[in-house]
Nucleic acid binder design. Sequence first.
DNA 1: GTCCAATTAGACCGATCCGTCTACCAACTG
DNA 2: CAGTTGGTAGACGGATCGGTCTAATTGGAC
Lengths: 189, 189
Amino acid sequence: MRNKPDTRSKLLDAAARLFYAHGISATGIDAVIAEAGVAKMSLYNNFESKAGLVQAYLEARHQQWLDLYRARLGEEPGGHDGVMAVVGAYLDHAEAGYEHGFRGCGLLNAAAELEASDPGRKIVAAHKEEVEQFLQGHLGKLTSPDTARDLAERISYLLEGAISRAGLEGDSRRLRRAGDMISSMVRAL
Amino acid sequence: MRNKPDTRSKLLDAAARLFYAHGISATGIDAVIAEAGVAKMSLYNNFESKAGLVQAYLEARHQQWLDLYRARLGEEPGGHDGVMAVVGAYLDHAEAGYEHGFRGCGLLNAAAELEASDPGRKIVAAHKEEVEQFLQGHLGKLTSPDTARDLAERISYLLEGAISRAGLEGDSRRLRRAGDMISSMVRAL
DNA sequence: GTCCAATTAGACCGATCCGTCTACCAACTG
DNA sequence: CAGTTGGTAGACGGATCGGTCTAATTGGAC
């Protein structure tokens, strides 16, 4: 195996930057390899096609969110803290300092330019479903299963709506306001 | 002036179908004119460029939403009915029977593939802001201005989040559930 | 030192991109 | 009638698209 700089990672990082900033279809293969500083054949050695690179991008983005979430999540968090760890992961993503500006949730943006039948949409749908499950788990410590389920759904909508509107405006303020709403909803349980 | 079939409308309708179903960058000019059944020069007689066509698409989509909303809005609606007219417009869009499937809010999807600096994003941001203002106006009939403002913001997030998740799943169920949440929130005022 | 697998730069492919241009045509206006 | 307007069909251009290929080079593993 070759040593560290890791061609595949360079490609994935470059693709992530460009896909997020300019969109997926607007980003050509040549732009990705130039940004990665890598030969074109290296892309096709590591990924089956552009679609394969997109798939890997979606999965990496999902994993990144999980990492942010786990970093926010202490051990044995209470219900309120657990919910706020989810909110915190959204805030971290929004405030990550993108070169070309914050443009909302990368996974939602990607899904928005994929055909209805594209398997990438399922990845994004599953990711959002998993986030809702995390919320439901935390809320279950504070209230009945039925209430936890309903509230998790409601909080999911608040978060996704807030990050969409925040993306349109280019900053995280609306996400912070949604976080405040969510915090007080959970505290009121 | 030429008579009815109206070349410009044919182009705008064709562009709307293709842009919504396949995304904007993935839709070429040649596909648009083929779908419209129109010569290429007719596109450039009616629009400055593809970007101009996109701009017109965004404005038309905004106008369509306003039409759906006004159709739902009786005269002198009460606060609850007014809010539910907004919700109804979202539902109408979701259930409009797209050839290639429901894929969420066309304006959010479009914004998702526009650069942060693209003027089209401002159109979408302003549209969402206007929707929130409508909500605030209706809620103002039922409660204090401060509460109306806060609740309008919250309902906006619920709606945008619900339509995003509904789009990922390809049907309007999540939007209906959000509508139920919103209805009971407003009734509780 | 020899081998091997990964990487390199870049030529090359056919297809498609957005946009321009020409030449012709149909319908309405005066 | 002549003139104007907006449409048609399609060739054309240069750029870029995703993807393949070759030939030379690299850096361990043995």
